[in-house]
Amino acid sequence: MSVLWRLCVAAAALLAAVWLIRGDGEPPVEFLTPEPKAPVPSAPAAAELTGPAASPIRYAYEPHCNDDSDGCTHYILVSATGERWWLPGARDGAPFVLSADGTVAVHPLEGRYVARDLTTGEVTKLPVKARDSAGEMFGAQQPLLSLDGRHLLVQHDRVDEDGELVLERPMIVDIRRGTVHRLPKDARIAGWTTEGLALVTEEPARDRPGHATSAAYVIHSPGGRAVRRFTLPGNLARGLPSPSARTLASLPREIAPHDVVSPGILLTDTRTGRTLRTVVPRLPAGLKADGLVRWESEDALLVRAEDRHRRSSYHVVDLETGAARDLRVDMTPVADYWLAPAEFSVRIGSAR
């Protein structure tokens, strides 16, 4: 290659470099900056609830904020119309429960449980402690209000000599009268019915071929008296009795090649033990039923659903048609903690 040719190539390279650096002419490549996404609207700021709530509470949750303001350290109440309040005394991380009509909240206050009438703002102190002798909050079993909101289930826990968590005898508290009745120990809480609280224990199956265990259900009146009993196969020990206790709902699991699936909501006649039918909830695409929260009536269940990202939503399922109504529990403005996702703190009130 001649010296002249080398000089020509070098001159061309130099001109090209100057062109790119100085920006003379149109650049050969244009780098585009993506348009910024529209900001996600935040939830309405929560105000202190100093008196009656304007409407029944749809749900409550822990805010999971990172500061010490009142709105970040108390449960947030959300009404059916979207209004948000923080409730004085209802600290996040503590037990909390709403009545099914969204008008009563129960939480610890100054070491004891209190019932707060959200329609009047009246606070009733209950004769039940919320902390043990070491000052630790009781919390293995969340409090549970009866269907009419008058009675409260409380079950304390303690750590035994071997370091094991032990549940104490369940207690039923009459909120109006302030009386307490204790129930038998070593039984699991199954849920409230119109007659009282249902407890269940698993026992060896004696007269049920094909089943290793049986589930013995006992319904106790608010006064502590056993008023009804029925026994079902052991695989129904995690069922949820209907308000009349004539039907038991369960969510069976089946192992599929790549997942654990549920065929639907299994309804069982508690008098005969026979399957009545299986209801497949008509949930939006991508959702599957993950848990039964409570009965709304003899013909409807409140169901928790999940998507593939483990995000929760709540739906009222019509047991006649399978139709599912979304309660629109919105947790998008709430930050998750790695070991405590915000959705775990949701408490459902009025589903109407």
Results as ranks from 00 to 15, higher is better:
6 R>L: 07
14 L>V: 14
16 A>D: 06
23 G>D: 07
28 P>Y: 11
28 P>A: 14
31 F>N: 04
33 T>W: 09
34 P>M: 11
35 E>K: 15
37 K>W: 04
37 K>P: 00
42 S>T: 14
43 A>W: 11
43 A>H: 07
44 P>N: 12
49 L>P: 12
49 L>N: 10
53 A>F: 08
54 A>H: 05
56 P>D: 05
58 R>K: 15
58 R>E: 09
60 A>S: 12
62 E>V: 13
66 N>R: 11
68 D>P: 00
69 S>D: 13
71 G>V: 14
78 V>Y: 03
83 E>Q: 15
93 G>D: 08
95 P>F: 05
96 F>G: 08
97 V>L: 02
98 L>Y: 05
99 S>K: 04
100 A>H: 08
100 A>T: 11
105 A>Y: 09
119 T>W: 01
131 R>K: 15
131 R>I: 15
131 R>V: 15
132 D>K: 06
135 G>W: 06
138 F>G: 08
139 G>S: 13
140 A>H: 09
142 Q>E: 12
157 D>H: 12
161 E>R: 15
162 D>Y: 14
165 L>Y: 07
168 E>R: 11
168 E>F: 01
170 P>N: 10
170 P>E: 10
172 I>P: 02
173 V>W: 05
175 I>Y: 04
175 I>M: 10
176 R>T: 13
182 R>E: 15
183 L>I: 06
184 P>C: 13
188 R>G: 04
189 I>R: 11
189 I>W: 03
194 T>H: 05
196 G>A: 09
199 L>W: 09
201 T>A: 15
203 E>Q: 15
204 P>C: 12
204 P>H: 14
204 P>N: 08
205 A>R: 11
206 R>W: 10
207 D>I: 03
210 G>T: 10
210 G>C: 13
210 G>D: 09
213 T>H: 11
215 A>K: 04
223 G>V: 01
224 G>S: 06
229 R>I: 01
236 L>N: 03
239 G>M: 06
240 L>S: 09
241 P>I: 06
246 R>L: 09
247 T>F: 02
247 T>L: 05
249 A>E: 00
250 S>G: 08
252 P>A: 05
254 E>L: 09
255 I>A: 03
255 I>G: 00
266 L>V: 01
269 D>Q: 08
273 G>A: 12
275 T>H: 02
276 L>F: 01
277 R>V: 00
280 V>F: 00
283 L>D: 00
284 P>N: 04
285 A>K: 02
286 G>D: 05
286 G>A: 07
287 L>I: 03
287 L>G: 06
290 D>E: 12
292 L>S: 10
294 R>M: 04
299 D>T: 11
299 D>L: 02
304 R>H: 00
307 D>V: 03
310 R>Y: 10
313 S>T: 02
315 H>M: 00
318 D>Q: 05
319 L>R: 03
321 T>Q: 02
323 A>F: 00
323 A>L: 01
324 A>H: 01
326 D>V: 01
329 V>D: 05
333 P>Q: 12
336 D>Y: 13
336 D>W: 13
338 W>Q: 06
341 P>H: 09
342 A>P: 00
352 R>Q: 07
